[in-house]
Amino acid sequence: MKIADTDILLVPGYGQTLPGHWILRWENKMPTARIVRQAELHTPSKKAWLEKLVEDVEAAKRPVVLVAHSLGCVLVAHGAHALKDKVLGAYLVAPSDWDREGLVAEFDGGDFKPVPQDPLPFRSHLVASRNDPYCDFARAEAFAKAWGATFQDAGNAGHINLESGHGLWPEGMMSFAGFMKKLG
């Protein structure tokens, strides 16, 4: 599947996505990509976030491929069955484990807990880091297995965000291109 034949919806996670983060750069590099812009970044509500994601998926003109980071991965898992008719696949990066107590001091995971364990109804690929402070590697592997996602070990890459040195993240772009090729 070619990127130009799809609408790429980029689904950020909890908090403000800093300028230079790979997800913002990918929006600029791919002409059919756009960010799902949530209203409440520091006090997210699963209901409100899911409504916005469904709205953006429904507004798409082409088949949709989701690219999610952190809490965005968990959102995709929560909404997968509501999205299945238009979503071809999901590329999931560094999911955060909101079932873990004290993950973020300012937010306890709210109604995003528990993290869904049901298979996703579309193809998916999960990229995880061995030293992600927001999700243990074994837990990320378990998410991939539960969701029916192929799994990629990103090595010691932190949370695969700007703070861990992943601005453009060319390895991710190459991996995403491989995932797109498998979609069709």
Rank of each mutant, 00 (worst) to 15 (best):
P12Q: 13
P12F: 08
P12W: 10
G13S: 12
Y14L: 12
Y14N: 10
Y14V: 05
G15D: 11
G15Y: 05
G15F: 02
Q16L: 10
Q16K: 04
Q16Y: 07
Q16F: 07
Q16E: 08
Q16I: 04
T17W: 01
T17D: 08
L18W: 09
P19M: 00
P19F: 00
P19D: 09
G20F: 02
G20H: 10
G20S: 07
G20Q: 04
G20V: 08
H21L: 05
H21A: 14
H21N: 04
H21S: 13
H21V: 00
W22S: 09
W22N: 02
I23L: 05
I23V: 06
I23S: 02
L24R: 09
L24A: 03
L24Q: 00
L24M: 04
R25K: 09
R25T: 00
R25Y: 00
W26H: 02
E27V: 04
E27R: 00
E27C: 00
E27N: 06
E27L: 02
E27H: 03
N28I: 01
N28L: 05
N28S: 11
K29R: 13
K29V: 01
K29H: 06
K29Y: 02
M30P: 00
M30E: 07
M30I: 14
M30T: 09
M30Q: 01
P31A: 15
P31E: 15
T32Y: 05
T32R: 13
A33L: 12
A33E: 12
A33R: 11
A33G: 15
R34N: 13
R34H: 11
I35C: 03
I35H: 05
I35A: 04
I35P: 03
I35V: 13
V36H: 04
V36G: 09
V36R: 00
V36Y: 02
V36M: 07
V36Q: 05
Q38D: 04
Q38W: 00
A39I: 02
A39R: 03
E40K: 04
E40D: 15
L41G: 01
L41T: 08
L41F: 06
L41H: 02
L41N: 08
H42W: 04
T43F: 01
T43I: 05
T43G: 01
T43Y: 03
P44T: 07
P44E: 05
S45P: 03
S45I: 02
S45T: 11
K46F: 10
K46V: 14
K46M: 12
K46I: 12
K47G: 12
K47T: 15
A48W: 01
A48G: 11
A48F: 15
A48H: 08
L50V: 13
L50I: 13
L50P: 13
L50T: 15
E51P: 01
E51Q: 14
E51L: 06
E51H: 10
K52A: 07
K52H: 05
K52W: 06
K52G: 09
L53E: 09
L53A: 11
L53Y: 03
V54S: 10
V54M: 06
V54D: 14
E55T: 08
E55G: 12
E55H: 15
D56F: 03
D56V: 09
V57P: 11
V57Q: 14
V57N: 07
E58F: 06
E58T: 05
E58M: 04
E58R: 14
E58D: 15
E58N: 15
